[in-house]
Structures are given as structure tokens and as C-alpha cells.
């Protein structure tokens, strides 16, 4: 076995902060939604708002990191290997077949991940942020008589926010499970904690073809 550097320090920090915040936002959010009582409504609202602002700050840093490092290209959806990746989850995984795509620092995501994460980042998270901000500030136009921007009620905003929340919970369930589908049950988790993933020796040659290191801006595309 050989250790392969996959996840950068900031990337791991970002991932775990995001995980914590999304779980916390989920718990407080569904309490605000009336699904259960845990913190108490008033606290839930306060915590949700604090977590929301923290999340927005985190997103701002993440966006900066993705663009300065060119990491955003990791998420460009592709058809290449899509079929074989799906086949792997449906058949290969049960036959102990090798992963159809190799994980490297330059290509961390398999085609299905690219698709799901792109949807998450380009669609669901922005929807949650935008509806969340409207939710926080929808009284502002009416209070200040900016009637052109007036939002008469929360109905649509809240329903969209709820749909996003359900999708995130669904993602969360699937995500937790798919963590276990790495080389070993825990190798994905270890990689996200330490940055290094253990890969079998037989892959060594292929990996050595690629120069391991921190790619510079734009280098990923090469």
C-alpha cells in the first residue's frame, strides 16, 4: 500500500466546517420548520441565523480557494466513464472489481460525484443561500417602503427553502453511505481527515506518471 495526497489542508477544513454547519443548519432548520422541538423555537432561529452567516463566510472563502487554485474544474460534469462508474456501483462493487476511476489530487471526483457536487454547488446551495437571505430580509422593502421589491409573504421562499433542505438531507444520507465505498470501508474517511489516501501498490506506476504536488493556477486543466 502506498499513501497518496488527495485533499489539501484548506479543502479538509472547508469540508468539515461545511459538514458541521450543514448538519447544524439542518437540525435548527427543521425545528423552525416545526418538525420537532429540541433547542426551543427562539434559540433555533438564533442559532440558525448565526450558522447561516458562518456558512456564507465559509462559502466566500471556498469560492476564493476554488478559483485561485482552479479547483472548480474538478466539478465540471463529464460523460466520460459515467457508465462504468454507474456499473461499478451496480455490479462491480459486489464482485470486488477495481474502481473504474482513479482518485488523484488532480482528479478527485468520479463522474457521478462531479454531477452531484456540481448540482449541489451550482443549484441547491445557492438556492438555500438566496432563499435564506430573502427569509432574513424580506421585511426590509416593506419596512422602508421600497414597494417595488416588496415580498408579500414567505410562502414561496419557505417552500423552496424546505425543498432544498429535503434534498440536502437526502444527499447527506447517500453521502454517508458512499463514504464506505472506497478502497476499504474507511479509506475515504481517512483521506478526508488526513489528506492522504492509501492506494494499492499495483496502481503505483500509473500514479507516478502524474507529478504529485500542489497544482498552480490553471494547471489542473493540462
Amino acid at each position: 500500500m502506498k499513501k497518496e495526497y488527495i485533499y489539501h489542508r484548506f479543502e479538509r477544513f472547508w469540508h468539515w466546517m461545511q459538514a458541521l454547519l450543514i448538519i447544524f443548519l439542518g437540525v435548527t432548520g427543521f425545528e423552525i420548520h416545526g418538525a420537532f422541538t429540541f433547542f426551543g423555537y427562539e434559540n433555533a432561529v438564533q442559532y440558525h441565523e448565526i450558522a447561516a452567516w458562518s456558512f456564507i463566510i465559509l462559502i466566500a472563502f471556498a469560492i476564493f480557494w476554488h478559483f485561485t487554485k482552479g479547483e472548480w474544474r474538478q466539478y465540471l460534469p463529464t460523460w466520460k466513464n459515467m457508465r462504468s462508474q454507474a456499473d461499478y456501483y451496480i455490479f462491480g462493487i459486489f464482485r470486488n472489481a477495481p474502481h473504474p476511476t482513479k482518485k488523484t489530487v488532480l482528479s478527485k471526483l468520479n463522474p457521478l460525484q462531479k454531477l452531484v457536487y456540481a448540482g449541489l454547488k451550482a443549484l441547491i446551495i445557492p438556492t438555500m443561500v438566496v432563499t435564506g437571505l430573502i427569509y432574513m430580509f424580506y421585511r426590509y422593502p416593506q419596512r422602508n417602503e421600497v414597494l417595488g421589491l416588496n415580498i408579500s409573504g414567505l410562502q414561496n421562499v419557505a417552500v423552496l427553502h424546505t425543498i432544498g433542505a429535503f434534498l440536502l438531507v437526502t444527499f447527506f444520507i447517500a453521502h454517508l453511505y458512499l463514504i464506505t465505498t472506497g478502497q476499504t470501508v474507511t479509506s475515504n474517511l481517512k483521506a478526508m481527515i488526513t489528506g492522504y489516501e492509501e492506494v494499492p501498490e499495483k496502481d503505483e506506476k500509473e500514479i507516478q506518471k502524474v507529478e504529485v504536488g500542489t497544482p498552480q493556477i490553471g494547471e489542473v486543466a493540462k
Binding site: 416545526g34 414567505l154 419557505a158 424546505t162
Partner: peptide, 23 residues
Amino acid sequence: FYMPGRDYNPWVERIGVGLMAIT
């Protein structure tokens, strides 16, 4: 009006919970 904590769209709830259950 829609009041958070009191109101919800029953279809969103059903489909949302269904999706979670299926997953």
C-alpha cells in the same frame, strides 16, 4: 399567510420524506 413552524406544503413534506426514506 405562511407562518414558519405552523405552515408547510403537504406535498413537499410527503415527497421530501419519501425521498429520504427511499434513499
